[in-house]
Amino acid sequence: MAELARLRHDEGVRLDPDAMSAIYAELGERGAEKLISRATEDLAARLQDLRQCLADGKDAQFLRTARMLVQIGTQVGMTSVARVARDLIRATEAGDSAGRAAVLARLERIGQRSLTAVWDLHDMTV
């Protein structure tokens, strides 16, 4: 009888501490916390939007939302989010529906881990 293998997707995330430090230096503690809070809320909302766009067949909106994730990730130093969102854009533009589905699942995992990492980092600095 054949054995099935279970694959665990346990990929670490990358946060750019220099980007976070620059935000705090430029905006001060209160302004930086507002920006990071807004960015994390936007990230969570955009991840949900991607699934909805895919379900509704809204490819143009899907790409716009993926590009927003690149901007959000870059802005607050979530380098993994930005990189995988770029991969999602490339798969979508290439018409690779299987690749798009796989990269979207990866983006969702990394997005959730990045949100957790940002808040864990925030808790350590408070």
Score class of each variant (00 low, 15 high):
residue 1 M to Y: 13
residue 3 E to S: 13
residue 3 E to F: 11
residue 3 E to G: 09
residue 6 R to L: 14
residue 8 R to Q: 12
residue 10 D to Y: 10
residue 13 V to W: 07
residue 14 R to P: 00
residue 15 L to V: 08
residue 19 A to F: 06
residue 20 M to N: 11
residue 24 Y to Q: 09
residue 25 A to L: 09
residue 25 A to D: 15
residue 26 E to M: 08
residue 28 G to C: 05
residue 31 G to Q: 05
residue 34 K to R: 14
residue 35 L to H: 10
residue 35 L to E: 03
residue 35 L to I: 01
residue 39 A to D: 04
residue 45 A to P: 04
residue 46 R to E: 01
residue 46 R to L: 00
residue 47 L to A: 02
residue 48 Q to S: 08
residue 51 R to K: 11
residue 52 Q to Y: 00
residue 54 L to D: 06
residue 55 A to V: 06
residue 55 A to G: 07
residue 55 A to Q: 13
residue 57 G to L: 04
residue 58 K to D: 01
residue 59 D to M: 08
residue 59 D to L: 05
residue 59 D to I: 13
residue 59 D to Y: 05
residue 60 A to P: 07
residue 62 F to E: 00
residue 62 F to I: 02
residue 64 R to N: 14
residue 66 A to E: 01
residue 66 A to C: 05
residue 67 R to D: 15
residue 67 R to L: 13
residue 68 M to P: 09
residue 69 L to N: 04
residue 70 V to L: 00
residue 71 Q to K: 14
residue 72 I to L: 04
residue 73 G to T: 09
residue 73 G to M: 02
residue 74 T to D: 08
residue 76 V to G: 04
residue 77 G to N: 12
residue 77 G to F: 04
residue 77 G to H: 03
residue 78 M to N: 08
residue 79 T to C: 06
residue 81 V to Y: 06
residue 82 A to I: 02
residue 85 A to C: 05
residue 85 A to I: 04
residue 87 D to L: 11
residue 88 L to Q: 06
residue 89 I to E: 14
residue 94 A to W: 07
residue 95 G to R: 08
residue 98 A to K: 11
residue 99 G to H: 01
residue 102 A to G: 12
residue 103 V to L: 05
residue 103 V to R: 06
residue 107 L to N: 00
residue 108 E to L: 02
residue 110 I to K: 00
residue 112 Q to T: 15
residue 112 Q to C: 11
residue 113 R to T: 00
residue 118 V to P: 01
residue 120 D to Y: 08
residue 122 H to A: 11
residue 124 M to V: 09
residue 125 T to I: 12
residue 125 T to N: 13
residue 126 V to H: 14
